[in-house]
Computed example of a mutant assay.
Amino acid sequence: MATQDLMNVYFDIIARILEMLGVSAIIAGAAFALFEVVRNLVRGWDGQKIFDLFRTRLAKSILIGVEFLIAADIVGTVIIEPSLDSLGTLAMIVLIRTFLSFTLEVEIEGRWPWQRGRNRHEDD
């Protein structure tokens, strides 16, 4: 087997591991968020507070998962299959997943990312 073929096999394995980590992060985060819902229901917490916490926990796990999936796409597309078509496909996938990450971040924080610094100084 040629060195390039062997490298492609290794990078393909790395891309698949990153994909599994991404999916695992989403599944584990969802399971943890659901566990917290049940625990907080038993404790008698307010339903709105439980719902808000669930959404935040779930969104954070999705964000982490998406980051792993983007990394897997980069490794799989750029290193294993370097072509203009695959690069265009990667650009679209990264654009969509970045938009998803951005909107989830806004959902979690409750403000635009560029407002973060201003709010920090207002709290001081």
Rank of each mutant, 00 (worst) to 15 (best):
F35R: 06
L58S: 10
D12G: 15
M7V: 11
S101I: 03
A30E: 09
L87K: 01
F68A: 13
R111I: 05
N40G: 00
P82A: 02
G44E: 15
T3A: 12
M7F: 14
V94N: 06
G44M: 05
A28E: 01
T77W: 04
T98R: 01
L21W: 03
Q4R: 07
I79W: 06
S83T: 15
V94W: 07
L21P: 02
R39T: 04
L104T: 02
N119R: 11
I13S: 09
G88L: 11
V75C: 05
G65K: 03
D85C: 00
K49Q: 09
R43Y: 11
T103G: 00
G65A: 05
I13R: 04
A71H: 07
S86V: 01
I96P: 02
I108N: 06
N40K: 05
A91Y: 09
N119M: 10
R120V: 10
G22P: 09
S83L: 07
Q4V: 10
L104K: 07
F99I: 12
L18R: 04
A28M: 11
L21K: 00
R39S: 10
I14C: 07
T103V: 14
R55I: 07
D124N: 07
D85Q: 15
R55W: 07
T77H: 09
Y10G: 09
L58Y: 15
L34H: 06
A91H: 02
A59Q: 05
A31G: 01
T103F: 15
Q48D: 12
F32E: 11
M92Q: 07
F102H: 14
